Simulated scan of single mutants.
Amino acid sequence: MKSRLIASLALGALVVLGTSGCAMISTQATTIQYSPSDGVNIPDSGPLQVRNVLIVADDDGNDGNLIAAIVNTTSDSQTLRIEFGEGSAKTTESIRVPANSTVSLGTDETEPVLLEGIDTKPGAVLPMYFQSGDGEGILFDVPVLDGSLDYYGDLLP
C-alpha cells in the first residue's frame, strides 16, 4: 500500500516537472523588447528617447517624410541631430524638443520633417545617425514605407 502511494507521488512529481520544465530554462517572451509598430525604436544614447521612427516616401524614393515621437524627460530643452547620406550628399537635420515634453512628427500639431534626396525606395531601410546631448549617437536602419496604407497616405511628401 505504501509503495503504491510512493509510486503515485513520484509519478505526479515527474508529470509536474515534465510539463513545467521548459519554462525553467527558456527565456520569458514578455521580457524581449521589440518595436510593436511599423517604425523602430532607437536605442537610448543620449537624453532624448526616439520612438517609432519611420520614413514615408513616394514610389520613386527621392524624398521622404520622417515620422517619429521624440521624448525629452529632462528639465532642459534638448536638440536631436539626425544625419543620413554619405560624403557630399550627407544631410543633417536638427529637431528641438522642449523640456519635459514629447514632439510627435507627422501629427496635427507637428509636421513631419521632409528629408530630401534620400534615394531609398519604399520597402528598404535608410541608415540614419541619431545623436542628442553629450550622447555618443547611434547609426540605425530606419524603414521606408509607402502611402498604400490609409493612415500613411496623408504623410507622403
Results as ranks from 00 to 15, higher is better:
residue 1 M to Q: 12
residue 3 S to K: 15
residue 3 S to R: 10
residue 5 L to Y: 09
residue 6 I to S: 12
residue 9 L to E: 05
residue 11 L to M: 15
residue 11 L to I: 15
residue 12 G to K: 12
residue 12 G to M: 14
residue 14 L to N: 15
residue 16 V to W: 13
residue 18 G to K: 11
residue 18 G to I: 13
residue 21 G to P: 03
residue 21 G to K: 10
residue 22 C to V: 11
residue 24 M to G: 07
residue 24 M to H: 12
residue 24 M to P: 02
residue 27 T to W: 01
residue 28 Q to G: 13
residue 29 A to M: 09
residue 29 A to K: 08
residue 30 T to I: 10
residue 32 I to G: 06
residue 37 S to Q: 12
residue 38 D to N: 12
residue 42 I to F: 02
residue 43 P to Y: 12
residue 45 S to A: 10
residue 51 R to G: 04
residue 52 N to V: 07
residue 52 N to Y: 08
residue 53 V to D: 00
residue 53 V to S: 00
residue 55 I to H: 02
residue 56 V to F: 02
residue 57 A to I: 06
residue 61 G to D: 05
residue 61 G to S: 02
residue 66 L to E: 04
residue 66 L to D: 00
residue 67 I to C: 03
residue 68 A to Q: 05
residue 69 A to D: 02
residue 70 I to R: 00
residue 71 V to I: 15
residue 71 V to D: 10
residue 72 N to P: 02
residue 76 D to S: 15
residue 78 Q to G: 02
residue 78 Q to F: 03
residue 79 T to F: 01
residue 79 T to D: 01
residue 80 L to Y: 00
residue 81 R to I: 03
residue 81 R to V: 06
residue 82 I to V: 15
residue 82 I to A: 12
residue 85 G to P: 05
residue 88 S to H: 13
residue 91 T to Y: 01
residue 94 S to K: 11
residue 95 I to C: 09
residue 95 I to N: 04
residue 96 R to D: 13
residue 97 V to E: 02
residue 99 A to P: 01
residue 102 T to D: 05
residue 102 T to A: 00
residue 103 V to Y: 05
residue 104 S to D: 07
residue 108 D to R: 08
residue 110 T to G: 03
